[in-house]
Simulated scan of single mutants.
Amino acid sequence: MQDSVVLKGLLALAALACGLALAAGFFGAEAHPFDSASHFRFQLALVLLVLALLALGLRAWGTLAVSLGFAALGLAFSLPWLLPREARPPAAGQPGYTLLQMNLLYDAPDKAEALRRIGEARPDIVTVQEVTYEWQDLFQNLSESYPFQAYCGLENERDGVAILSRRPFVGEALCQARNGRVTQLVDLNGRTLAVTSLHLDWPWPKHHWKQIDDMGVSLRREGGPSLLGGDFNAAPWSASVRAVADAGGWRIVRGIGPSWLTVRFSQIWPRWLGLPIDQLLVSPEVLVDQVETLARTSSDHLPVLLRFSLLPARPAPTQSVAEPATAAFEGLETRPGAGGA
């Protein structure tokens, strides 16, 4: 009898702790430590479901109610982001394009795996993170397929970012190495798409939010379609991802699902228990046709493939021919030589 009381008490404490951690994640915009808890919302909801089953077995009705209530809250605000989205054809009369988002893992033991995945998917554009000089040398071997390449921050040893493209670049790449960001204008059949590759640090207490605050309004591009692919180290429902989306005038793409798993983790547990920390953000002019994760490489991140199309262009206001192609971006550092084949 006494053992049962102790078990019920421990179960109640566990349910309350998980429930409070889950609830705190909804206040991440007000307190950054709370946002760090939000990234585990789905996992906390699953733990609470297990606790609910244990409470049912022990006839701990109060704990059962608390566990189910918090679990329902967590699932309601995480599952819609994780469930696969239905594929749709490109917009009528508009060509379709593809973008591959990959965190490479700077010291991946088999770098050929990532190159094979690019060759299999044959995307128009690739956004990559954790790029090193060694990775750059390997990508130079793809110059026939991807003659347009822009790099930023390689001197940081493991925090470099890059964009590879089959499509021509317009102007110079814009680089914010300290914030793990490179932006490049890409010509898609006469339409100019602003593409960004972004790598954010780990959440609080690391420098995650400082990067976001430093970028601020410089993320926004006025008057044209834009697309961001990156390793956010943050879940799509978090305040930090929302802050980046709001700053850039983007919407967050749903349906990517879990994308980060350590090698050991993937061998023990089902893939869907990973963390959804690789994100795609798109402007209103970009239509998402399909998004999916591809077979893993030697990285601890899964590649994410986006199929998209563009809304028909609106008539543009008259613009001086002397205005530089990169004038649409303000507050960024332009680094000579950042773009190149």
Score class of each variant (00 low, 15 high):
A91R: 04
P90R: 03
L115I: 13
Y97M: 05
I125M: 02
L115S: 05
R117E: 10
P95F: 10
A92C: 04
P123S: 07
L100D: 02
A121W: 01
L100N: 08
K111H: 13
L115C: 06
K111R: 15
Y106T: 04
A121F: 00
P95L: 12
G96L: 05
N103A: 01
V128T: 14
L100Y: 01
L105A: 00
D107I: 14
A108E: 05
P90Q: 07
A112M: 15
M102C: 03
G119W: 09
R116Q: 15
P123H: 01
N103Q: 10
V126R: 06
D110S: 03
T127N: 13
A121S: 08
P123T: 03
A114K: 08
G93P: 03
E130D: 10
V128E: 13
V128R: 09
R116F: 12
D124C: 10
M102N: 03
A108W: 10
Y106F: 14
Q129R: 08
A112V: 15
P109S: 04
R88M: 06
G96D: 04
I118W: 12
K111C: 09
G93H: 01
V126S: 02
L115Y: 08
P109T: 03
I125R: 00
N103F: 05
A92I: 12
I118E: 08
A87L: 02
Y97A: 07
L100A: 02
A112P: 11
A87E: 01
P123G: 12
L104M: 02
R88L: 13
G96S: 14
A112H: 13
R117I: 07
G93L: 03
T98D: 05
T127W: 12
R88Q: 14
G119M: 05
T127K: 06
Q101A: 10
E130P: 00
V126H: 08
D107S: 08
L105E: 07
D124P: 02
T127Y: 08
M102R: 09
P109L: 04
P95S: 14
T98A: 08
P90K: 05
R122G: 13
E86C: 02
D124F: 00
Q129K: 13
A108T: 05
L99V: 11
A92E: 11
L99G: 09
A112F: 11
K111P: 03
G96N: 05
L99M: 13
R117P: 06
T127P: 01
N103V: 04
L105P: 02
G119K: 09
A112Y: 11
L105Y: 12
P95T: 14
P109D: 04
R116G: 13
K111G: 01
T127A: 14
Q101L: 15
L104K: 01
D110Q: 11
D110M: 12
A114C: 07
R122N: 14
V126D: 10
V128F: 09
A114H: 14
L105T: 07
E113F: 11
